[in-house]
Computed example of a mutant assay.
Amino acid sequence: MTSAIGLTGLQKTYPGSPPVRALRNADLTINDNEFFTLLGPSGCGKTTLLRLMAGFEVPTAGELRLFGDDIAHLPPEKRPINTVFQHYSLFPHMSVLDNVAFGLKRLRKSDVEAKRVAQEMLDLVHLSAFSARKPDQLSGGQQQRVALARALAPHPRVLLLDEPLSALDLKLRQSMRAELKRLQKETGITFVFVTHDQEEALAMSDRIAVMSQGEIQQVGDPATIYEFPRNRFVAEFIGDADFFDAEALGGTGYKLANGETLIGPETEAGIGSKVTLFFRPEKATLKRKGKGLSGQVADILYLGNSTDYVVELAQGGSLTVRSENHKDGTAIADVGSDVVVDIDPAAVRVLTT
């Protein structure tokens, strides 16, 4: 695969007392024609990394390459990269067509050529019928698509998207995910998407880099990140999870802090080693009786297509089980019901970090 963006030991420290290390020794390769997402909580360094790619910030140390060329100190206007921000910054006095054509004219394209390409971009984002309107005559989702068309018009080699969906309502965000993915595939442009929304990242990305405190914690495709997180931070941030402190008994056995034994995968951790076990709530089964961890339903959270059952375990501790709702809408158990939680050993993961 061709590397679109390559980072080696990239660092960014902001001066102050004390200095703020926003990015620490980042090593990363983003492939050409890839939808790549930087995912993490506020302050994790993802926007700083995006701004370094765009040229709005200069790295303190390390290498930043675009298709093999060193761009660490290249000004933004010299980079074949465009950025779509959370706030679209459309010109209110210009038509939609003129907004999209504006950047092309700045690149010294003729008026005829600029408008031709702008119209092509509006066709691409399904807004050709709105070309004569002003931005305030459009919905939020339509304005966002205009901003996308404007960023795509110069045919950048890389498009950076800094939380562009965060200002939209839930339904519109969901429809725009599919739209962004379609645009990336149709244009063949490398998309680098920044978000703190785990669902967005899982739904849209070819690969994800999970970030925390200025460091890249794990890089992988969505299924790998969700199913096999490298550490507890990734496991907690990328989705809901139940955690247990445990002691390795050797083979596939683990002794929980409450004294019960749980069967999981084999681990390289030695007998007596302290480990953390976790599983996703939807991977456990709530039953009235049978083998498993016994307990009592303490709370029920109805989620529409599923329900979360918070179970207080008989030997101490608690966990959450997520169950798909019955077709007739009835609950599996009521608050106060005695239940058993059956956890498939194949669903258990072992974290040693």
Rank of each mutant, 00 (worst) to 15 (best):
N99P: 06
N99Q: 07
V100R: 03
F102T: 02
K105A: 01
R106Y: 01
R106A: 04
L107I: 04
R108L: 06
K109L: 12
E113P: 05
K115V: 02
R116E: 14
V117K: 07
Q119S: 14
E120I: 03
E120N: 12
D123L: 11
V125F: 13
L127T: 13
L127H: 14
F130C: 15
A132L: 13
R133Y: 15
K134N: 09
P135W: 13
D136M: 13
L138H: 11
G140D: 10
Q142G: 08
A147G: 05
A147H: 09
A147R: 00
L148N: 00
A149Q: 07
A149Y: 06
A149R: 01
R150N: 05
A151R: 00
L152E: 01
A153Q: 06
P154K: 04
P154L: 04
E163D: 10
L165H: 00
L168E: 09
L168V: 08
L168S: 03
L170Q: 13
L172E: 07
L172T: 13
R173V: 07
S175D: 14
R177A: 07
A178G: 11
E179H: 10
E179Q: 12
K181Y: 07
R182C: 06
R182M: 10
K185L: 10
K185R: 15
K185G: 01
E186S: 11
